[in-house]
Write a protein that binds this DNA or RNA. Structure first.
Lengths: 352, 352
DNA sequence: TTGAAAGCGCTAACAT
DNA sequence: ATGTTAGCGCTTTCAA
């Protein structure tokens, strides 16, 4: 009633400020500020608090975070950098990050960075936006981006990629264990000639999985036959690598692939060569992407706790933002083997 | 040389402000502000401009967007609301949105909203963050969220879901055409008894595809046999619906599914019932998710231009943000049929 | 317990 | 072409 210059809670014309609320409640702006902050609410008398809340609700007050960000230096926003959201490992990671962020009422500023150059530019812009921290899934080995982020002094953690220099916290899956699980499974089936389609060796996961593969073979006293490096973690790169492998004189009995996409590319090459999985050759993947249980044959692979990877990374970031000295610098999560139909005992050779 | 209080470009200690740059360049802050804004740079003499840029670079100046947002009311940020990022249709949509945003140096604030209640709360917080606009992939039919967003007066567009009330712009795929493509393909193969596993009828796509299915059958003078509604767009819901269908007396010859996940659930049910696709029954999907070409049998489905869906939605949003009266309120993109091995001519019954 | 006042870093009139 | 000035909306000392 009386003459109100606003039309209602949802009116957009002139956004409602803390000053409007103060006026409506008959108190000072600083009182409103206190009343609306959960941490300082206790300083206010119950009576005034009720008045302020009523006024805020009636006017449809919405705090202006840009203003509070300017004043406090906190934006309640974290930046998330991904190499490629269409790669199926990242959505669950993102979901984990968001679950953690949302529980703290933080938002995610999301961006793709195909290559190092754009990644640097994006981080630069994110710093300009004054994100409170950074989760990065993109760093290559010895990435200059890590130097940059470290120098900028902003809280940051890596996910799905470790920092070899140890300056940034990271949450990763145990790549060596993953490869050991795959190799042990194949060895138990009776395979001896086991090859590896390795990931790009400029990525930490590419190196880690390759080393894990080599170590697992060494533990059993056998040699790789052989290891071929893919140019990317893609189906196409997997097909090409597998073609190379099949062109060699002595065909392996089994192939451990650096990830599912590469394994599916290997399927493509097998099909093109008129060979059958697992009859002519067993194949394992890595990641347990959606639908690999439905391909033909269903893929034996290593399952990663993707969601937890993201969640833990974000939790670690928030600890760092809160100023807690992050003691645990790299968290390593356990993968598990999922046996399906792409692996079987090697075919007994005619003549034996 | 001289006594500099800062240690270098990357120093984080005391963030460099426009004032520091002005001092270093021997000019006034407003000159710096102008020199650093591409649109007003032309007002500055080349000489001064060079000085300012040199000073900014030397000090490692990074504009504070929170301050500029407070002043201008523009955050260069759009909010993106998704129901579920792990659903494979959304990553390419997101990618399209980001491509558009990135080209304008905008960031995306991303959030999931499982249900309507949380969606409302998230939008509320996004408004507090002063996003410049909203892309929503979540609205159900007659969603109160649309009322809210409209009332808030913030630029917003829907993607992958139309607004029946026509207040918000939207970019969608042509669901009716998609179903017609599937039905026509099956009819040409000789199928007559064609069933539909429909999506949830509280979602625009669920209704649209169902109507498209019905219309396509009507055009050919045949009746659905029958239509069963799934409780969700999920593999599990598809399996359950297919079980219901198979439990009925007269089994259909072909089933048009509302999406790929549901179709894969139908595969599950077929497998459990000891039936073969397409020998005993043809199945079509919708979306052409990654890997559905590799499942067994490879799925005949309808491909959507997901990336373009996202890209166009964002473009539409930016037009709206720029204040251009959006004449085209709903953009409908064309899907295309992808024929694979899950559809075949109906088996000729014994005795014919 | 509440009020007063200053200022975060920037932009945009307005003045020169 | 550049300088002056005010103020965006909020938080946070300091005072009462």
């Amino acid at each position: 009633m009386a003459s109100s210059s606003r039309t209602g809670p949802a009116a957009v014309s002139a956004p409602v400020t803390i000053r409007d609320v103060a006026q409506a409640a008959g108190v000072h702006v600083s009182t409103v500020s206190r009343a609306l902050d959960p941490r300082r609410r206790s300083l206010i008398s119950a009576e005034v608090l009720a008045q302020v809340e009523a006024a805020a609700r009636k006017l449809g007050y919405r705090p202006n975070r840009a203003a509070s960000a300017l004043r406090t230096g906190r934006t309640h926003t974290i930046g998330v950098l991904l190499p490629d959201i269409t790669n199926a490992v990242f959505p669950p990671i993102l979901e984990g990050i968001e679950a953690s962020a949302a529980s703290r009422h933080y938002f995610m500023l999301m961006a793709h960075a195909a290559d190092n150059g754009t990644a640097r530019a994006i981080v630069e812009r994110m710093l300009a936006q004054r994100v409170d921290g950074l989760v990065m899934a993109t760093a290559t080995r010895d990435d200059p981006l890590i130097d940059f982020v470290t120098a900028a002094g902003i809280p940051a953690v890596l996910v799905n990629r470790a920092d070899d220099s140890g300056r940034l916290g990271a949450v990763v899956s145990d790549d060596r264990l993953a490869m050991k699980l795959a190799v042990d499974h194949l060895a138990q089936l009776g395979h001896v000639r086991i090859a590896h389609l390795a990931g790009p060796q400029n990525l930490p996961t590419g190196v880690g999985r390759r080393q894990g593969f080599e170590q697992a073979l060494r533990d059993r006293g056998i040699k790789p036959s052989p290891i071929i490096e893919c140019t990317a973690y893609s189906r196409d790169a997997g097909r090409l690598a597998m073609q190379q492998l099949l062109a060699r004189p002595k065909r392996p009995q089994a192939v451990v692939c650096c990830n599912d996409l590469v394994a599916l590319g290997a399927y493509d090459a097998m099909l093109a060569a008129g060979l059958q999985v697992p009859h002519d050759l067993s194949i394992t993947g890595h990641n347990d992407m959606p639908l690999v249980d439905l391909v033909s044959p269903p893929l034996t692979t290593v399952r990663l706790p993707h969601r937890e990877l993201g969640w833990r990374a974000a939790e670690m970031l928030f600890e760092s933002i809160a100023g807690e000295a992050g003691s645990a610098s790299t968290v390593v999560l356990r993968p598990e083997l999922v046996v399906r139909a792409s692996t079987a005992a090697p075919r007994v050779l005619a003549g034996h």
